[in-house]
Design a binder for these strands. Structure first.
Length: 801
DNA sequence: ATAGGGTTAG
C-alpha cells in the first residue's frame, strides 16, 4: 500500500484515495499493518484539510469509520464515531462488528446513539446482530422498542431479522411460530420474499413433526420464490435428520439452482452419506452445473473424513485443471480442506506445501496444519507451529494439549493447560478432557480431582468427553469408586464410557464385575465394539477367567459381527499362557485366519516363559527376531524364558547377543522420595538416543520438588548404576519397598511415589496400601501395570529386567 | 447504512 502523495490533496482526491483504500480492503486481513498505516496517513490529511465532519462531505467520515472497523482499530473508529453519533455510521459499525462476531461492541454503537435519533434501519441492524449471535430474547426486546417508539414502523427487514432471531429460541414450539406468523401477516410484511424465507426457516427449526407441513404451506403460498426458498427447505430437512425429504425437495426443483446442489451435497456429507454426495457431485460435473468453492469444500471434506484419499486427489486435480478464479477469501476454505485431506492421507509434506502457497490464511488454516502434525506424530514440529501461529483460538490450545497427551508428554500437557488459563483463554470440555487424561497418566489424583471440581462449576457435567476422561483418570489413579460415581451420574453414557468403566473394573482385579457390566451394556442395547472386547478379554486376563474369555471371544463374531484382530488373538493367547495351556495356544495359532503378527508371537513367547516350553518359545522368538530385529523386548523376553526353564547359559547368551547386535535397551527412570532426598534411578542404556530426554526428566523432577517446597532441601541423587547393581536393586518390589527404601523410617507427612513403568501384582499393591495406612502417609502409585495373578518371577523386577 | 442459505480445523 503506497502512502498517499505528499502534495496537499483537494477533497476529491481524498475521496478517491479512500475509495481505493476500500477496494483494497482484502489487504486489511492479509497485511493489516500496512493497511492501517495508509489509513492513518489519510486520516491525518483529511484533518489538515478540515474535511472531517464537514457537512458537505458526511460520507468521508463514515467511510473512514468503516475502514477503521475493518482494520480492527476499534478505538479509532469509536473515537471518530463519538464526535458525531449519527445513526447511519452507527448502523455500519453495528453490522461490521456483528459480522466479526463482536456482539457487545456492536450493541455499544446502538447505545451511543440518542434514542430520538435512532431510525428503523439502525434497529434492524441490531436485531440481526443479536440473531447472528443466537440471542433471541434481546432481539425481541429491540423489536419491541422499535414498536414502542411510536414514530417508527418495522419494515420487511425488521421482520426478517426478528424471525431469524426467533429461530434460536430454546423451546421453539409451533404455537410460537404461528404467533409470529400472525403478526407478520397483520403488519402486511407477509408478501416479502425474505420474510417468507425466514418463516420457512423458522418452522423448519421446530422439533414438532407437523411443523414441516406449515413450512410447506408458507412456501406454496409465496407469490415468488428464489433459490434461497428451496435451499432453506433442503437445509431444514437435513438438520431434522430427514435426508430423504431433503432429497425429494431437491428433485422437485430439478437442479435449477446451483446453491441447492451445494446444500444437498453438504447435507449428504453431514449425514455421513459420502457415496451419495460423490454421486451428486459426479452429476454436477456431467451436467455442467457450475462448481464453486462451496461445492469443492464439501466434497473434499467428505473425501478427507471417509479416507477416500484417491478420490480427493482427483478432485484436487480437477481444481487445478479448471483453474477457477477464486478470490483469496473464497479459496481459503478450499485450501484449508485440501490441507486436511493431505495431512489425513499421511502426506504431511504436501499439506505443508499447500499451506505455504496460500495467499490468505486464517485460524482454521493454522489449526489444520497444527493438528496435521499432531496426528502424524510430529510433536516437535507441532510445537514449532504452535509457537509461530500469528493467532490462536481455544481449539489451537486444545489440539496442542491433547497432542501432548497422545505423545506421552503429560507434564507438558498440564504445563500448557496452566499457561492457557494464565492467558485467560477459557478451556472447553475437550481441553479439560486432555488435562484430565494427563493427570491420569501422571497419577496426579489430587490435581485430577481439582479439575473435576472446575468442570462441575463450569457446567460441563453433561460432557461425554470430559466424563470419559474422568473415568479413565480415576481408574489409573486407583480410585475405582470415584470412576464408578462419574459413570453413574453421566447423563448420556456412550460406548466409550462403558468401555472405560469396564476397563477400570478389569484393571483392578474386579473381573467378574467387569463382565457383568459388559452384559448390562449389551442388555441396554448398546453395541459393543472391538475396543469393548479388548477390554473384556483383558479383564478376563487379570482375573484369570479362562472359560469366560473364550465365551466372549466366540460371541464377538457370532453375535455382533466383529472380526477378531491380532490384538484380540494376542490377548486370548496370553490368557491361555497364564492358565498354563500352552499347547492350546499353539493350536489356536493355526486357526488364525492371517499371518501371526509380532504381538501374537510375543504373547506366545511370554506364555512359554511361564511353562518353560523352549521349543515353541525359541520358534516364537525366531519369528519375532525376523519381524522386529531391533526390538529390545524380544531379547529380554527370550532371555527370561530361558531363565524360567533353568537354562541360565542360554539366557546369558541371548543377552550377549543383544549387546553384540547393538540393540539398545530403552532408557527410563524410576524415582522415589526418602526423607529430603529424591532417589532417581536411571535404567536402561544411557547411550540410547532418547537418554537425554530421561536426563531432562530427572532435572525436571528435581526442580519440581524444590518448587513445590514440601521437601525444602530436596536433593536429587542420580544413580547411574552398573548392570549388576541394577539387578540387585530392582530385584523385588516388596523387598525394595520395605527394606531397600526404608519406607517405615520416613518422616511423618512425607509423600512416597512408587516408580514408573513397573509390573506389580495385586498382592504387592495391597502391601503398599497396607504400609501406607500403617504409617499414615499418602502413597501414590503411578503408571504401574498391575497383575492379579502372578507366578514366580512375574511381579518381581527380574521380569522387567 | 440493515435481511435470509450452502464451506473449512477437533
Amino acid at each position: 500500500m503506497p502512502p498517499p502523495p505528499a502534495a496537499a490533496s483537494p477533497p476529491y482526491q481524498c475521496s478517491v484515495l479512500l475509495r481505493r483504500l476500500a477496494a483494497s480492503s482484502s489487504l486489511a486481513t492479509s497485511s493489516p499493518s500496512s493497511f492501517l498505516r495508509a489509513l492513518r496517513c489519510l486520516h491525518a490529511r483529511l484533518l489538515t484539510c478540515g474535511l472531517l465532519h464537514a457537512p458537505s462531505h458526511p460520507h468521508l467520515t463514515l467511510r473512514l469509520i468503516h475502514l477503521y472497523t475493518l482494520s480492527r482499530d476499534v478505538p479509532a473508529a469509536a473515537l471518530l464515531f463519538r464526535s458525531n453519533p449519527c445513526p447511519i455510521a452507527a448502523t455500519s459499525l453495528v453490522a461490521a462488528h456483528a459480522a466479526a462476531g463482536h456482539l457487545p461492541a456492536a450493541v455499544s454503537f446502538f447505545d451511543a446513539v440518542p434514542p430520538a435519533r435512532r431510525d428503523t434501519v439502525l434497529h434492524n441492524a441490531v436485531i440481526s446482530a443479536y440473531a447472528r449471535a443466537s440471542r433471541a430474547a434481546p432481539a425481541v426486546a429491540v423489536f419491541r422498542s422499535l414498536l414502542a417508539s411510536g414514530s417508527l414502523r418495522p419494515d420487511d427487514y425488521s421482520f426478517t431479522a426478528l424471525l431469524s432471531a426467533a429461530a434460536h429460541l430454546p423451546n421453539l414450539s409451533v404455537r410460537h411460530c404461528a404467533q409470529l406468523h400472525c403478526s407478520v401477516l397483520k403488519s402486511g410484511a407477509g408478501g416479502a420474499l425474505s420474510v417468507g424465507n425466514a418463516l420457512i426457516a423458522l418452522y423448519m427449526k421446530c422439533d414438532a413433526p407437523e411443523a414441516t407441513r406449515d413450512a410447506r404451506n408458507v412456501l406454496d403460498e409465496m407469490p415468488a420464490k428464489d433459490e434461497l426458498t428451496w435451499t432453506t427447505m433442503v437445509v431444514g430437512y437435513v438438520r431434522r435428520g430427514d435426508v430423504g425429504a431433503a432429497r425429494s425437495v431437491f428433485e422437485e426443483v430439478d437442479g435449477k439452482f446451483d446453491v441447492v446442489w451445494n446444500a444437498m451435497i453438504s447435507g449428504y456429507v453431514q449425514s455421513g452419506m459420502a457415496t451419495e454426495a460423490f454421486e451428486l457431485f459426479r452429476r454436477m460435473v456431467l451436467g455442467r452445473v457450475p462448481l464453486d468453492e462451496f461445492t469443492f469444500t464439501s466434497v473434499l471434506s467428505a473425501c478427507a473424513n471417509t479416507e477416500f484419499f484417491v478420490l480427493g486427489k482427483s478432485v484436487h486435480g480437477q481444481i487445478i485443471r479448471l483453474q477457477p478464479d477464486f478470490a483469496p477469501e473464497a479459496a481459503l476454505p478450499v485450501n484449508n480442506t485440501l490441507v486436511t485431506l493431505y495431512s489425513k492421507g499421511g502426506k504431511i509434506a504436501v499439506a505443508q506445501r499447500i499451506f505455504d502457497s496460500m495467499k490468505l490464511k486464517d485460524v482454521v488454516s493454522w489449526n489444520t496444519i497444527l493438528s496435521g502434525y499432531v496426528e502424524s506424530s510430529c510433536l516437535d514440529k507441532a510445537v514449532e507451529v504452535f509457537k509461530e501461529m500469528p493467532y490462536k483460538n481455544e481449539l489451537s490450545w486444545m489440539v496442542m494439549v491433547s497432542g501432548y497427551v497422545h505423545g506421552w508428554r503429560a507434564e507438558d500437557a498440564l504445563k500448557l493447560f496452566n499457561w492457557m488459563r494464565a492467558e485467560d483463554v477459557k478451556p472447553c470440555d475437550y481441553t479439560y478432557a486432555g488435562a484430565i487424561a494427563a493427570c491420569g497418566e501422571l497419577g496426579a489424583l489430587k490435581h485430577g480431582k481439582q479439575l473435576h471440581g472446575h468442570l462441575v462449576q463450569l457446567g460441563f457435567e453433561g460432557s461425554n468427553s470430559a466424563g470419559n476422561a474422568l473415568i479413565t483418570m480415576y481408574a489409573k489413579c486407583g480410585a475405582v469408586k470415584e470412576a464408578h460415581l462419574v459413570f453413574v451420574v453421566m447423563p448420556n453414557v456412550d460406548s466409550v464410557s462403558w468401555n472405560a468403566m469396564i476397563s477400570a473394573l478389569g484393571q483392578h482385579g474386579h473381573g467378574r464385575e467387569a463382565l457383568d457390566l459388559f452384559d448390562q451394556m449389551v442388555a441396554e442395547g448398546i453395541y459393543p465394539d472391538r475396543i469393548s472386547y479388548l477390554t473384556v478379554l483383558s479383564a478376563c486376563n487379570h482375573a484369570g477367567l479362562l472359560d469366560e474369555g473364550f465365551h466372549y471371544f466366540e460371541s464377538m463374531k457370532r453375535d455382533f459381527g466383529i472380526i477378531p484382530g491380532e490384538d484380540h488373538y494376542a490377548r486370548l493367547i496370553d490368557l491361555l499362557g497364564r492358565a498354563g495351556q500352552i499347547g492350546e495356544a499353539r493350536d489356536l495359532i493355526k486357526t488364525i485366519p492371517f499371518e501371526p503378527t509380532p504381538s501374537i508371537w510375543e504373547a506366545i513367547l511370554s506364555g512359554c516363559r511361564n511353562n518353560g516350553d523352549m521349543e515353541l518359545g525359541a520358534y516364537a522368538a525366531d519369528q519375532l527376531f525376523k519381524m522386529t530385529p531391533q526390538h529390545d523386548g524380544t531379547y529380554i523376553l527370550l532371555s527370561n524364558t530361558y531363565s524360567a526353564a533353568g537354562r541360565w547359559v542360554d539366557a546369558a547368551r541371548v543377552r550377549k547377543l543383544m549387546r553384540d547386535q547393538g540393540v539398545k535397551k530403552e532408557p527410563g527412570c524410576s524415582w522415589i522420595e526418602v526423607g529430603n532426598k529424591v532417589h532417581v534411578f536411571l535404567v536402561g542404556d544411557t547411550k540410547h538416543p532418547e537418554a537425554h530426554e530421561v536426563y531432562h526428566f530427572l532435572e525436571m523432577v528435581g526442580a519440581k520438588m524444590r518448587k513445590l517446597g514440601y521437601l525444602p532441601d530436596t536433593k536429587v541423587v542420580l544413580h547411574d548404576m552398573e548392570p549388576h547393581e541394577k539387578e540387585h536393586i530392582l530385584f523385588s518390589h516388596s523387598e525394595r519397598l520395605a527394606v531397600g527404601f526404608g519406607l517405615l523410617k520416613l518422616p511423618p507427612g512425607a509423600t512416597v511415589t512408587v516408580l514408573k513403568n513397573l509390573k506389580i501384582c495385586a498382592d504387592c499393591h495391597a502391601a503398599i496400601m497396607f504400609m501406607s495406612k500403617a504409617v499414615g502417609r499418602e502413597i501414590v502409585v503411578r503408571d504401574v501395570r498391575r497383575f492379579h495373578h502372578f507366578k514366580d518371577g512375574e511381579c518381581s523386577c527380574g521380569n522387567y529386567w
